[in-house]
Structures are given as structure tokens and as C-alpha cells.
């Protein structure tokens, strides 16, 4: 599982973390909390290498990504790592030119080479799981925030990642939508999906955390 060892991250010479260790526990949900600007999102993005670290190592056995790799080698390993993780963004980032169904099937088809029929059957199951089966043929511009976030979760799960990373998945949502999304995340937690969730909402942290990491 994802493991950080002695990870240091600096922005413009300012140290955000120094020598941080972190182990995600398989089958459990790790919640990261802390005040705004303390580096929660950055920590999450280090886990799938959307950000590079300055010292230490990030690994997901057998992939090992020490700091300071040459760019090409880092790119290769980072892409490999990302193929085994899923990510849900605060702002959804659905692909607006694709239908809900195509949003979910694109990565399996392009990255994993899945056949269309297989990918679609799988995608419909996932949409069922997040309660969005009826929206398969709609386009993202026609979805509410909560619906978008649930589709984003289905999209992230479609490549069968070993771990799901969620960055403030509810902070842009109204209470009703938040409840829908939290229900989905709780459901995944019950099913034993390994998750790492960033939030600044203490209530949400308490409700969802198997492991709690306090930053800042």
C-alpha cells in the first residue's frame, strides 16, 4: 500500500513538510485534517505524484519513487503509480465533452485497453453503486454538484484502483448533496475499499475515519 518515508516538500524554499512518514492501511479509510493552507491537498497529490517531493521516497510496492529521479524515469514510474490509484477532486473535473458513461469508460478503454462492451457493463455497475445509473447518457453540464461528484467517484473506481484518494469531495456541495456523497463514501468504506480522504470538516472526519492524520 502507499507509503511515504521521510518525505519533504518545499514551495519556493518554504518547507511544507519535513521528513514525513505515512502508511495507508489496506481496507481502511485514512482521513487527513488540518487548517486551511497546511498542506492537505499537497500531501494527497504527493501520494499519486501529481506533485513531486524534494526528499524521501513514495512507494506502492513494487513501485519505488525516490526524490530526484531523472524526469523521464519519474514520469514512467509516476504514471504506473497513478494507474493503481484513483482520485476524486474537490472540483470534480469531469470531462465535459463526454457523456457520463463515457467519462467512466474512457480510462479503462484507453489506459487498460478494455473492450467497449466490458468497460460499459462495468461502468453501469459503478454508476448503480453511486446512484447515478439513470444519468448514464447525460452530459456533465447537466449535472448538479452532488451528481457530478458521484460520477467522479465512479470514474475513479473504474480502473479498479488499489486506493481511492479524495480531496475535499464535499466542500463545494450543499447539505443534501453532501449527504449523498458521504453515503457513497461510507458504503465504499464498508466494502473495504482503501481510501485516503482530505477534509477540513471535523464532523466528517469523525464520521468516516478509521485512521486520523492531523496536519499543521
Amino acid at each position: 500500500m502507499i507509503r511515504l518515508r521521510g518525505v519533504t516538500k518545499r514551495y519556493d524554499g518554504r518547507v511544507l513538510f519535513a521528513g514525513l512518514d505515512l502508511d495507508l492501511v489496506p481496507g481502511r479509510t485514512t482521513v487527513v485534517t488540518g487548517p486551511s493552507g497546511c498542506g492537505k491537498s499537497t500531501l494527497l497529490r504527493l501520494c499519486n505524484q501529481l506533485e513531486r517531493h524534494d526528499e524521501g521516497a513514495v512507494s506502492l510496492a513494487p513501485i519505488e519513487i525516490p526524490a530526484g529521479l531523472p524526469h523521464a524515469a519519474w514520469q514512467r514510474r509516476a504514471a504506473e503509480l497513478r494507474r493503481r490509484t484513483g482520485m476524486v477532486f474537490q472540483g470534480y473535473h469531469l470531462f465535459p465533452h463526454l457523456s457520463v458513461l463515457a467519462n467512466v469508460t474512457l480510462a479503462p478503454r484507453v489506459v487498460q485497453g478494455a473492450a467497449r462492451a466490458v468497460a460499459e457493463a462495468k461502468a453501469r455497475q459503478l454508476l448503480e453503486l453511486v446512484g447515478m445509473a439513470a444519468a448514464a447518457d447525460r452530459f456533465p453540464a447537466r449535472l448538479s454538484g452532488g451528481e457530478s461528484q458521484r460520477v467522479a467517484i465512479a470514474r475513479a473506481l473504474a480502473t479498479e484502483p488499489e486506493v481511492l484518494l479524495l480531496d475535499e469531495p464535499t466542500s463545494a456541495l450543499d447539505p443534501a448533496s453532501t449527504a449523498d456523497v458521504v453515503a457513497v463514501i461510507s458504503d465504499l468504506r464498508r466494502r473495504g475499499v482503501t481510501q485516503m480522504l482530505v477534509t477540513h470538516d471535523p464532523q466528517l472526519a469523525k464520521a468516516l475515519a478509521d485512521e486520523l492524520v492531523q496536519l499543521g
Binding site: N48, L50, Q75, A79, R82, R83, T85, G86, M87, F89, G91, H93, L94, F95, L106, A107, V110, V111, R155, A156, T159
Partner: peptide
């Protein structure tokens, strides 16, 4: 964010 979402799904550049 569009490129990042694709990268996070394992797409190459």
C-alpha cells in the same frame, strides 16, 4: 484540472 484528471487516471501526456 482536465489534464490533471486524465493524469490521475493514468493517462500519459
Amino acid at each position: 484540472g482536465q489534464r490533471e484528471a486524465a493524469q490521475a487516471l493514468g493517462f500519459t501526456g
